[in-house]
Design a protein around this nucleic acid. Sequence first.
DNA 1: AGCATTGCTTGCAACGCTCCAAGCCACCGA
DNA 2: TCGGTGGCTTGGAGCGTTGCAAGCAATGCT
Lengths: 340, 340
Amino acid sequence: MERGSRPATLTDVAQSAGVSPSTVSNVVRGSDVVAARTRRRVLTAIAELGYRPNALARHLLRGRATTVGIIARDLRNPFFAEMASLVEREVAGFGFGAMFCATDGDPDREEQAVELMLDHRVTGLVIVSFLSRPALIATKINDQIPVVFVAAEEPWADSVTVDEHRGGEMVARHLIELGHRRLAFVGPQAPDRADARRLEGFLRAAADAGLQPTVIAWDPPDGPPSVGGVVVEWPTILKGNEPLTGIFAANDFAAIDLLDVADTLGVRVPEALSVVGFDDVDMARLRRINLTTVSQPRGALVRLGVGALLGRIEGRITGGPHVTMASVGLTVRGSTAPPP
Amino acid sequence: MERGSRPATLTDVAQSAGVSPSTVSNVVRGSDVVAARTRRRVLTAIAELGYRPNALARHLLRGRATTVGIIARDLRNPFFAEMASLVEREVAGFGFGAMFCATDGDPDREEQAVELMLDHRVTGLVIVSFLSRPALIATKINDQIPVVFVAAEEPWADSVTVDEHRGGEMVARHLIELGHRRLAFVGPQAPDRADARRLEGFLRAAADAGLQPTVIAWDPPDGPPSVGGVVVEWPTILKGNEPLTGIFAANDFAAIDLLDVADTLGVRVPEALSVVGFDDVDMARLRRINLTTVSQPRGALVRLGVGALLGRIEGRITGGPHVTMASVGLTVRGSTAPPP
DNA sequence: AGCATTGCTTGCAACGCTCCAAGCCACCGA
DNA sequence: TCGGTGGCTTGGAGCGTTGCAAGCAATGCT
């Protein structure tokens, strides 16, 4: 092929091989009806011209692209980064391309992303984490293509999640067994459903032990923490008269920021403060972080999610209900210990 | 629009509005030739049917998609994750969709990714970090579409990089000024060009001070470190007779793993060992990591890179040469101090 | 010899859109 | 009355594929 020339088309190949476009098409798609002789001629022409089929044309005809859309919240959070990457790899294994968009939780970008992908006639959508305006997105998608939520859940689509509630319970029990009484949950100002579930489980297990944890809203690194809308100060709640001793952060990303706050204030972890995260991101295992956290089986979540999506695409309804659960487990590391 | 129905086409809209497809097309593309009355009728029909133009059809006709391909090495490394995310956001700002692939440095996946994107007729390609087989990829791309490397460099395409060499020099000078004499560079077994440049700069500035750093090949977390192909032991080189005191890791990701090694061995940083990274990833600022590192202006790199790409797309040749340089600076934190 | 069958190959109509040339219909000036 | 003009609308070809129906030799069967 000439440098910089327009890419060869199927018709070019047909001409060069002296056959009809249909025959070339048959060869390309590996139909077995073509005579060996002809196939060889065509193959040579293809190689000579460096022909590659135009996916746009194929997809237009099919009415659907061989492409999956991936929408993630935020690649700065290593959990999402890895999930997105895993999804891409998984769908690639089935021959699908991936369109990608990180929304940073901005509802407008969510909307644009979905429209973009719908316009490109992606075969399906994998949404990693929650949407800000699920109802709007649902009407947009309008059952046109299958959607699966991974590590998140919406009633109108398939989803694969861990048992967040149980994860929250495990954290509470762990802290309580260690002897903690003054517990808290730290989550975003605008919690999504996973955050809420984790909190529920945490509160439930705490209540069973007669405890009532503080619920702190905090969006690191900028915002100040607040309880019930009232701004509080880290020094007060971590170093005051009755300091919190066990904090469950809604995710590892926040937990690690919380560790940083503790470090800044000179509050020693785990001696003075126990911290538990959720997700078990790679860096949680570093000795410097050494975070006790709830593990999500990322690979399994992605495999199940993509499996469900492909099932829908092929018309099968895979898993039983719309919601599948995968296991969850507490990984105890060095950020938790008995209270002082 | 009916639930689950096939999406409305331009022709559907035309029929419903009682005009020709051409007119609908004119309205959709915002041509000013359509009479206000007609435009309103068409607009109503569009809204009623929930019509959205089929990007595949448009792109087929144009010969090019309004889509940019992003190829990154590895989303587990937060530097690449953030770069990829920034690129996606930047191109989205210009109305482009993004196809994405993470190759994990696997040459086969690189090849597949490029083919996939070429087949989808992406408008251009942004490649974050180096390729394993640049020559092969170059022939594949064959000047069909513009390519820009960000934070990497190939002779056959535009690229935007920081002055890696100078970054390496700055690290060496910093360590030498602190009084270090036993220096080392830690980089991957198969260094890419950026690694090589950083090393060059490091060696150069060290040589100017009469020093000859050890060059260690290491691919954390699996492989053992080696010098000149000979496997060495961390305990020996960090705690032996003449331990290394200043180590420059090719990137923050490796630097953080090195910190973990030091922690495991009980080698105190920075008291016994100074560590410097490269990239200034978000987590480097955490007190628990507190890594001295060379900052890359990520936003600027991406803006310049995408700018160059769009320039090529529009036929302008933007920057002077194929290679643009952006500034680089040492961020001194707590992982470096005078040697013991 | 006549006819069906086998084994290939081909023509053609889509897919949903764009773009250009051409058409239509007042309305205007001469 | 007629040609011209301007404002708006339309027909149709074509982008690169696919998939089906039809074509067409050569072979097999009776």
